[in-house]
Nucleic acid binder design. Sequence first.
DNA 1: TCTACTTCTTTAGGTTTAGTTTAGATTTTC
DNA 2: GAAAATCTAAACTAAACCTAAAGAAGTAGA
Lengths: 224, 224
Amino acid sequence: MKILIAEDEQALQQSIAIYLGRDGNICEIASDYDDAMYKISLYDYEIIILDINLITGSGLDILRLLKKEKKKAGVIIISANNSLEDKLEGLDLGADDYITKPFHLAELNSRIKAVLRRGKYGGDETIVFNEIKIDTNSKTVYINSKIISLTRKEYDLLLFFITNKGRVLSKEMIAEHLWGDHSDLVDSFDFIYVHINNLRKKLTREASRYLRTVYGSGYKFIEE
Amino acid sequence: MKILIAEDEQALQQSIAIYLGRDGNICEIASDYDDAMYKISLYDYEIIILDINLITGSGLDILRLLKKEKKKAGVIIISANNSLEDKLEGLDLGADDYITKPFHLAELNSRIKAVLRRGKYGGDETIVFNEIKIDTNSKTVYINSKIISLTRKEYDLLLFFITNKGRVLSKEMIAEHLWGDHSDLVDSFDFIYVHINNLRKKLTREASRYLRTVYGSGYKFIEE
DNA sequence: TCTACTTCTTTAGGTTTAGTTTAGATTTTC
DNA sequence: GAAAATCTAAACTAAACCTAAAGAAGTAGA
C-alpha cells in the first residue's frame, strides 16, 4: 500500500509513517504544499493523508487538483480546525474521511482501512505502453497479451518507470519510492541493481530494451 | 548534483562540503556575499545552502535576487537566529526550508533530499541553442534532432557552457564547477583539455565551432 | 505452529564505462 | 625562434554497473 502523508509537522509525519509502516505500508512524506503536488503528479497513491493547513498552501487546493486530474486516491483530511464548514468543504471536494487533531494513530489506521474497503480508489485503470499492458486493479502485467508474473518490487519498479517514462530516475528516487523514507538509513543502493536486473530478465527481449541505464545518473524508460 | 554553499564560517563550509560530497554531490563554496552573487549569476545550481547572516551582506538579499531572476534553485537557509520572523521572511521570499545552527549534517542532508524531491528545479526544461537541444529531464542532448551521447562530465561541461554563453570560463571555474572544491588539491588543470577535446569530438563540426578557446584565459561558447 | 515456498536483501567477483594521467605534438604569443 | 599554452591519443585507474548465488525474511498452506 503506497500512502502519501502531506503534513508539515515533523513529529506527526514521523509518527504516522512509523505507525503505518508497521502494517507493511510504504509511506512517503510531503513536507509542504509543493512537495505534495509534485509527488502526486509522479505517482498514483492509494491513500493520501492530507493536512488542510499546510504552511505553504491549502490542502483543499490539492484536493481540487486530485479531483480535476481524476486521481483515484482515497483521501483522509487532517485538520486542527474542527469547524463544520471546513469539514463539509473537504468532503464536498471528494475527500473520503476527515479527522481532527489531535487523534490516535489507531483511529487513523481504522479510517484508512474503512476507506480502502469502500474501494473508491481502485478504479479500473490499465496502463498501456506499446506491447506492455498493466492492469493496476489486479496488478497484472501483460506483454503481447501474455501474462508475465512479477514480484511486488518488480511490479512497483515497472509501474514507476512507465508512469515516468522519458525521465531519468536516480537510484535515490527509486529507493525512496519503493522503500519509503527508511532509505535514508541505507548507505548503498546496490540492491536496486538486483531488482532492475530481475525485472529485465522477466521482460521480453523487446520490452527490456525500453529500460535503459543512464550511466552515472540512474535509469530511464525510453518513450518511443 | 550541484550545490552552492554560501557560508562564511570556514569550518562549517568544509564540513558541509565534505559531508555532501560523499553522496556524490559537487559543492562549490561562496565565502561572502559578493562571491555568492557572482557564482549564482554564473550557473543555475540545484541547491543553494544560504547563511542569512553573512558578514558582508544579507542572505535575504541574495534570496530576493534569486527570485527576481527566476532561478530555480532549491534554497535552504541556515541561521543562528531562531526567530520566527526571520524564518517566515525567508520562506516568504521563496526559500524551501530553514535550519537553525547548530544542526546535524544528516539533517541538512535529508532536508536537501526533501527539497530536491519536490522537483521545483527540474521541471521539464529543455534548453535550445541553434541546432543544439538539451532535455535536462532525460539528460539527452540533440543536435539537429539527432541524439548525441555524452558522458556525465561532457554533459555537465556542455550545459555549463551553454548556460553561460558569451562568457569566458577559465579552467579554474570549470574545474570548480565540475569537480567542486576538491580541485584545490590538484595543481594542474590539464585534464580539462581532455574533456574539452572529447566534447568537441562528439559535437558536429558546426556545433563544435561554438566552443572557442580563448588563449591564456579559458574557453567560451560564442552566442551567435 | 511447522514447513515449504517465495521474495527480498546482501555479498562478492566480474564486466563495462568513464575519468585521469602521461607524454609527445601542435599552436599561439611575444 | 623560444616559451608557454593547448591539443590529442593512448595507457592506466577508478567508478559504476551487472549478475549469480546464498542467506534472511516474509508468506501461505497443512
